[in-house]
Design a binder for these strands. Structure first.
Lengths: 242, 242
DNA sequence: TAGATTGTTAATCGATTAACAATC
DNA sequence: TAGATTGTTAATCGATTAACAATC
């Protein structure tokens, strides 16, 4: 197997870069493999994975290749090894500590999700400006005053920040995160953040999702009405037809 | 301007198809245009938009072309018209009614988001199996017993379902939605749903986001350490290097 | 052995970027 | 007019899909 290496400008370090689309398919693979394992299987083929996830088997093979695991012709992949390698690749073995800013309803929902830890993300503290929330615990995680975030992030060498504050506050809070040494921001606010280029932003824009969903729904209704005119009318003004 | 039309197999209807990546950029455009308008501007150019959102101006122009709006050379686009056309295209003028299944922390967070209505999505009812939640209102929306969902969806001709139940229940609840005539499911459960082909599923997989975020963070730390060895070690086992 | 499946290279497809003429 | 910006076509880039030899 050949590995593509990319030379990094900073030094002698090389670092394999996985295409974004591939990366997004890996967690579903992992989930399926766990199911498969629970069914008592010992090996799995790309055909198996592709069948369940509605993906081209060739694509699955390419994806696994870029993770760097090897299979055996005619047999497939050893399930146990594949799961282990995937988890290692995704960094799900060791926890990254994260701060969460904004303990509103979305922030609380994230604090309540214990499954994140299985994916290597541990929210170690929440921050808010609301005196009623400060000092309390939400789903077991301490809520601290927002003004302490920067200093604590520095001291604890936190690298990941989760941003669940209102859109109006997002940029200011993000600035604080950056000042505290945070290198990656998971942004739930519907705002394009300005950050230095050494900081990564991953936008979780639910409004974009709504747009995509209703657009696809509309196109789909066009093709297969199966609905009374009244139903179609409910949505038909959504997209201009030409 | 030429418009690409796609013939739909079902009948004489034509329906313009917008590439997915384009669609996801439209809500950010809209947001920026509103800001721009608040600043008192009357026109906007692709260069303006691209500069703020870190996008190639040509790409912005292509995107606007596929929405079907026209600008004027040397002037740009009339802001008011552009905003209006974007909203119309995205269907943000008229509301689509949606049901939400699973009034847990994530479900409640979505119920609490009043901004969704500005994007054409109105959650008209929530459903849950918990007797303590049934009959109450969460953020002003009534929570009803889960077993009523299917029939109500049919009667109210609901087309959109939001799925915020635990992974174990997701498929069963989705089946109920489909049986109730729902045509689009916004799925927050980390499961690949099986649905008939006339039903659309949009996955909101936070675990994939975590994977993408930590992977990008790791690659970034490789290139620009700027961190003490201890910091890097915190995360370095995450991805096998070769 | 036979045949399914991997590994790998080539072809296709779609989106982004570049180039440039048209135009206000 | 001059020059910025649109509209549009061509080139590039990257990801997906197809093809096929290698192999257990």
């Amino acid at each position: 197997m050949k590995l593509k290496l990319q030379f990094s400008p900073a030094g002698g370090t090389t670092c394999k870069v996985v295409p974004g689309p591939t990366l997004k398919r890996l967690p579903p693979y992992h989930r399926f493999l766990k199911e498969w394992q629970a069914m008592g299987r010992r090996t799995v083929s790309c055909t198996d994975i592709g069948a369940r996830l509605a993906l081209d088997p060739t694509q699955v093979r390419k994806d696994l290749e870029s993770v760097g695991v090897a299979g055996k012709p005619r047999v497939g992949y050893v399930l146990e090894n594949l799961i282990r390698d995937l988890e290692r690749f995704l960094g799900w073995n060791n926890l990254n500590h994260a701060f969460l800013a904004g303990a509103g309803s979305m922030g609380s929902a994230l604090l309540g999700n214990r499954k994140f830890e299985q994916c290597g993300l541990k929210i170690v503290a929440g921050f808010d400006v609301d005196p009623l929330k400060i000092g309390t615990k939400i789903h077991g995680t301490q809520i601290l005053p927002a003004e302490k975030m920067k200093e604590l992030a520095q001291r604890m060498r936190i690298l990941i920040g989760i941003l669940t504050v209102p859109a109006t506050e997002a940029q200011a809070v993000a600035d604080g995160m950056v000042a505290g040494g945070i290198r990656a921001i998971w942004n739930f606010a519907p705002v394009r953040l300005h950050v230095p280029e050494h900081v990564i932003v991953h936008d979780e824009d639910l409004y974009c999702s709504i747009a995509a969903l209703s657009q696809k729904l509309f196109a789909n209704l066009q093709m297969r009405p199966q609905a009374t005119p009244a139903m179609a009318r409910n949505i038909s003004a959504a997209v201009p037809m030409r």
